[in-house]
Structures are given as structure tokens and as C-alpha cells.
């Protein structure tokens, strides 16, 4: 549904996107992750025909965005920069978009209600808070009931309730078979929403993996503490497990906690602590992107 193929974009001497390729399949929510300045917004704008690629190409629903007939009925977009005239009311902003996109005007009221903005539709946009502006942007993206959604940092400015609503809503849209690309620079923000993640850094693809694989990457050693640490260590070593003693009765074992617990129970070894050491998703993210940060303790 969305295809990015060997996309490169230069702004003068700055290489914003470097030979980037990935696809977003229908029925999937794909997270597009990278630190600030990684090239996410540039890539999304290239997908939407707003930025001209220096090399490579992008397509949506099999064709370049510019070749789509009535594109706002096929693709909904939320861009990071706010794109409504401050002197126009939120409702009129959406009406303009509806007329331009050939979308029935009744959809304006529908989407305003959907994003919980029906009461603020008559107010001029310049009086909106950041969260309201974000909701208006989401309403604009959803106006054409599109098959594809490209959302740049959609959770920005939303309160926790709004983020939860957005998460559930995007999941429900994906269940209907729509393709959704959602960018963020915070992995944990989208972890519960996305099916897979495209991670980029300095314009280059770092990894395109299923979210489950990212979570697996977060798994690490297990810490176990026992009054009979020496005996436990030898039992674990006999089971060919890599064991490191820390000197305070704690052992660090490269194995899942279930395996260690079962082994201790089978040999009647008392345990005072059994804890999986997991890196946080952000630590995995930082490790993948080569940013400074230490993997879990």
C-alpha cells in the first residue's frame, strides 16, 4: 500500500534520507521510528508528494501520490507542522478540505465529533491549544475516510486519554484493512499500537522488524538470589547455563526466569529473588540507533 524504494533526499549538502526502502502493508500499523532529525518527516513528505526525492521513488496504493484521483479520499495525512489558517474556524478549515477533496460536507461534523471537537468547531484556530490543534489535524486526516493513513507524530500534544483513544482507534482502523504509517521518536509511545517498526537513523534504515522481535531484543539476563547461592551456581553450571556471581549472593544467569525457577524447585533450593532483567524499549531503540545509552541493569 505504501512503498518507499531506494529513497534519497538531499537538502543542499545535507543528506536527509539515504537509500531508504520499506513497505507498509494493508491491515498493519507500522511504526516509523528514529531520533529527531533522522529523516522521518522528510520521508513522509516524500510519500505525500510534498518533497521531491533526489533519487528513488515512493508510491501509495501502487502509484505516486500525485497520480491519485481525489487523493484526500484515498490517503489521510497528519503532518508535524500545523497546517490550518489561524484566522479560520476549525469547522471552516475542514469544510474547505471537504470541498477541495470532493468529500461530503456531512463528514465534517462526523470527524469533529470523532475527535471530540464538536463544541470547538466554531472557534478560530488561533485560540486552540496544542492538543486541540492535533485533534483538528487528525480530523483532517480522517475526513476522507481513507484507506491509507500517514501520521507524523500524532500523539504530540495529546493527553493520556487522547493517546489511548488514538491507539485504540488506529488499531480498529488497521483491523478494517487500512495501511497506517505512524512516526514517533519515542518507541514506548507506539509500542502498544504498531505491528512492526521501521527504525531509521541519519536517514538510513537500521531495522524493519516485527514489534514482537523488538520486545524479544529487550530480554536479557535473569538475576537470582539464594541463601544457597554456591549450590545453585553449580546446579546452573551443570545445566550448561552461563552464570556470573556478583558476590552478594546474587547470580546473573543467561536464561529465562522460568528455567531457573524450575531447576531450583527440582533441587529444593530456596530462592529469595528471581528477576528478569529487561532492557526498556527505549534502551533497545537507543542501542539500535547507536545513540548514547546503556542497556538495562
Amino acid at each position: 500500500m505504501i512503498e518507499v524504494e531506494r529513497l534519497t533526499k538531499r537538502f543542499g549538502s545535507t543528506l536527509a534520507v539515504d537509500d531508504l526502502s520499506f513497505t507498509v502493508a494493508p491491515g498493519m500499523v507500522t511504526g516509523f521510528l528514529g531520533p529527531n532529525g533522522a529523516g522521518k518527516s522528510t520521508t513522509m513528505r516524500a510519500i505525500l508528494g510534498l518533497v521531491h526525492p533526489s533519487a528513488g521513488h515512493t508510491s501509495v496504493l501502487g502509484v505516486p501520490y500525485r497520480d491519485l484521483d481525489r487523493p484526500t479520499q484515498r490517503v489521510g495525512a497528519l503532518l508535524e507542522t500545523f497546517d490550518a489558517h489561524p484566522g479560520r474556524s476549525g469547522r471552516n478549515h475542514l469544510r474547505v478540505l471537504a470541498v477541495a477533496g470532493g468529500i461530503p460536507r456531512s463528514r465534517v461534523e462526523d470527524v469533529l465529533a470523532l475527535v471530540d471537537m464538536a463544541g470547538a468547531g466554531r472557534r478560530r484556530v488561533k485560540s486552540y491549544s496544542l492538543g486541540m490543534r492535533q485533534r483538528l489535524g487528525l480530523a483532517a486526516a480522517l475526513l476522507g475516510d481513507p484507506e491509507v493513513l500517514v501520521l507524523d507524530e500524532p500523539a504530540n500534544g495529546l493527553d493520556p486519554q487522547g493517546i489511548r483513544w488514538l491507539r485504540d482507534f488506529l488499531r480498529s482502523l488497521a483491523t478494517e484493512g487500512r495501511a497506517i504509517l505512524i512516526s514517533s521518536h519515542v518507541l514506548s509511545e507506539v509500542a502498544q499500537t504498531v505491528d512492526d517498526v521501521v527504525i531509521i537513523h541519519r536517514g538510513r534504515l537500521v531495522r524493519h522488524v516485527a514489534m514482537g522481535d523488538v520486545e524479544a531484543m529487550a530480554a536479557g539476563a535473569t538475576t537470582v538470589r539464594s541463601p544457597d547461592a554456591e549450590r545453585l551456581a553449580s546446579l546452573l553450571a551443570e545445566a550448561n547455563l552461563d552464570v556470573t556471581a556478583s558476590g552478594d549472593g546474587r547470580l546473573s544467569v543467561m536464561a529465562p526466569p522460568e528455567q531457573i525457577g524450575e531447576l531450583a524447585a527440582a533441587n529444593a533450593v530456596v530462592l529469595h529473588e528471581l528477576r528478569a532483567e529487561r532492557a526498556t524499549l527505549e534502551e533497545v531503540f537507543l542501542e539500535l540507533t547507536g545513540e548514547p545509552g546503556e542497556r538495562g541493569t
Binding site: L48, G49, L50, R66, P71, D83, A84, A100, G101, A140
Partner: peptide, 14 residues
């Protein structure tokens, strides 16, 4: 000036 060009070009990409 107001950044509405992006939204406009999404409706009129040519």
C-alpha cells in the same frame, strides 16, 4: 505564510 500549502497540495498534488 501559514503553512496551509501542505494541506492544499495534498488535495491538489499537481
Amino acid at each position: 505564510r501559514h503553512g496551509t500549502i501542505a494541506r492544499t497540495l495534498l488535495a491538489v498534488p499537481r
